[in-house]
């Protein structure tokens, strides 16, 4: 029986882990390698590194960091931020990443999804969707949540699936860093319409939110940042809580 994955997310900027609110007001949250090691030992099911500085400032990703982490941490690693070509994907995989997350580049060039899936396999490609509500529905945003593409998030998710992405990382830009809970309506909408796994992100502020994301939002995995980085809870505590709520986790 498959278990729900708990995935700590390290938003990295210039080699340090940072965390902001609604994609702004970045604060220092720790040393990435140290945090990665700690989460691994505590039972993290995967780790994600997002180079959040990458998109607006056109920098490369956090490959040196991944290279270091991959030598001693043996759980799946996802790298995102600034991946614009299959060549960038290859470099990330060579550095030790198992998957790459693409957001802005995929919206600019949807073929990047199929090219990546064809060359490295669908299991390598994570389509990261930054979704924000505007007027009548959720739209896909780019550039760290600053630019509305005008493409409805649900349409983009289905298109991404058809192009061969292995899973969807769904981030609510309205809830990011607020700790008000996941955007459950958004989560439910997307996860019920696609057949690939959906990772919930953005807004979890307490343990109840995590359970809701899984039981109500139907997420297959949850991505966490602030809750863990600021030591509001720990992975063992999360797993114990979820298990009590009847959610299957890896112990």
């Amino acid at each position: 029986m498959l278990t729900v994955r708990i995935i700590p997310c390290l938003d990295v900027d210039n080699g340090q882990v940072v965390k902001g609110t609604r994609f702004k007001e970045l604060k220092y949250a720790g040393d990435p390698v140290e945090l990665a090691r700690q989460y691994y030992l505590e039972g993290a099911d995967e780790l994600t590194f997002l180079d959040i500085g990458a998109s607006p400032r056109e920098e490369v990703t956090v490959l040196d960091l991944v290279r270091k982490v991959a030598r001693e941490i043996f759980i799946p690693l996802t790298v995102g931020g600034g991946i614009r070509s299959t060549e960038d994907m290859r470099k990330a995989l060579e550095a030790g990443a198992d998957k790459v997350a693409i957001c802005t580049a995929a919206l600019n060039n949807p073929d990047l999804i199929s090219q990546g899936a064809h060359r490295f396999g669908s299991q390598c490609i994570v389509l990261s969707i930054d979704a924000g509500f505007s007027g009548d529905c959720w739209y896909a945003y780019t550039h760290g949540g600053r630019k509305n593409t005008g493409k409805p998030a649900i349409e983009w998710a289905l298109e991404g699936q058809a192009l061969g992405t292995g899973e969807i990382l769904l981030n609510s830009i309205d809830r990011d860093g607020t700790q008000d809970g996941y955007d459950l309506e958004l989560l439910k909408e997307i996860s019920s319409r696609v057949s690939i796994p959906v990772i919930a992100s953005g807004g979890a502020g307490k343990l109840e939110h995590l359970a809701e994301g899984i039981t109500v939002g139907k997420a297959d995995a949850i991505l966490l940042a602030s809750l863990l980085h600021y030591k509001q809870t720990t992975i063992p505590e999360i797993k114990e809580y979820l298990e009590k709520k009847g959610v299957r986790v890896r112990c």
Partner: peptide, 11 residues
């Protein structure tokens, strides 16, 4: 299955 691929930890 409803969800494909299977991604995650299983016994």
């Amino acid at each position: 299955a409803k969800r494909i691929p299977q991604i995650g930890w299983n016994r």
